[in-house]
Amino acid sequence: MAKRIDVKDLDMYYGDFLAVKGVTMTIEPRAVTALIGPSGCGKSTFLRSLNRMHEVIPGAYVKGEVLVDDQNLYAPGVDPVGVRRRVGMVFQRPNPFPTMSIYDNVVAGVKLNSKRMKKSDMDDLVEASLKGANLWSEVKDRLAKPGSGLSGGQQQRLCIARTIAVKPDVVLMDEPCSALDPISTLAIEDLINDLKSEYTIVIVTHNMQQAARVSDMTGFFNLEATGQPGRLVEYDDTQKIFSNPGQKATEDYISGRFG
């Protein structure tokens, strides 16, 4: 149930500090959108504002609109809890719940929502989610073991399984591979490619090769100067961004001249 996201003139604040200014973009369904840019330019802040995780930080708030299927996430009366169920998130460092088994980690989000689910349905869901995250074959014999016993890459795929188990419309990924080795990174990138048939995926990455490999669209964020808010400089087809960028700043960044 991939959904289109329309962002309209979105400003993100931490208290009085304007972190990201005036972002307007349309994120396509069933595609991977990569957000690139130098450190501190507000990519992650922007990503977190797409499922209202931004406001978890005390004093942080947002101005503007984020429309998912023409419904504004920031409209009065919208419950952030409901938003986060529709728009899932995978974090920079894998964070399975340490006291839960692999099985319980996968159904952690589902259990919040449904009062009673048949054991067999639950088992099916765990299998489907773990298969969806390309992890099933590796863990199917030790579902009752703690999730913290897995390798970093496996933990991250477990977190992806946990996220897709609640059947979100959108999956946000905040540098999902930055804490992983190259082989695990490859596994995650393959997974992202598989997932885009069903979900709208937005991924923040520092790795430009990764953006080029996995994404269909790419947005480049940058600061005009230190102390200034970050902004979306250019947003286009990934191919275009990497072969023939429209802005000088984008070209400089991609060719490694700064950042």
Binding site: L73, M117, A128, A165, D194
Partner: peptide, 26 residues
């Protein structure tokens, strides 16, 4: 850019959709 050898993507079986009780705008 992609590596030459890719695992065959596993088809994702249709999982039972969990009942939704948190509509976006409630």
């Amino acid at each position: 850019d992609q590596p030459a050898v890719r695992p065959v993507p596993q088809p994702t079986p249709a999982a039972p959709r969990p009942p939704t009780d948190t509509p976006l705008l409630h």
